[in-house]
Amino acid sequence: MRLITHNMLQCHVKGCNANNFPLEFQEVELEQEEAEMNEDFLRNMLTKLEYDALVSTCLKLGINDLPATMPADAAYNDEFLQILHRVILETHVKSGKMICPNCKHIYNIRDGIPNMLLAEHEV
């Protein structure tokens, strides 16, 4: 699971509608894997990202590369786009847990695959 994916995930347990993002990582094993840079995609993501959540999540994982606030010229700031690419597209979570800050539901990640299935009563 790439870090970009974490930024679009929220807890979807029935009735858990507030403070359900971002899910908190625990016991995470990371891996870097090179990927081709897609600038169109990165620019498109600038408006979609919850940037503050991305930065705080990264800091907890020991990734300090991102500036605290998104540069005003982000779309054409090559240096920033490169960092963003490395963080959201090349950083993979191989295993770990994601915990809902609200209802504390635990989603497991194994072999790089998050299991977001809920039990029947949670849907």
């Binding site: 699971m1 790439r2 970009i4 994916t5 679009m8 995930l9 929220q10 807890c11 979807h12 993002f21 919850e50 989603y107 072999d111 790089g112 695959i113 998050p114 299991n115 977001m116 299935l117 809920l118 849907v123």
Partner: peptide, 21 residues
Amino acid sequence: SICSERGHEAMVCDGLALPYR
């Protein structure tokens, strides 16, 4: 698992309860 092995971004979830924002 097959999907992920191919290098695609993939997760297990139910179509009636997608975990996306």
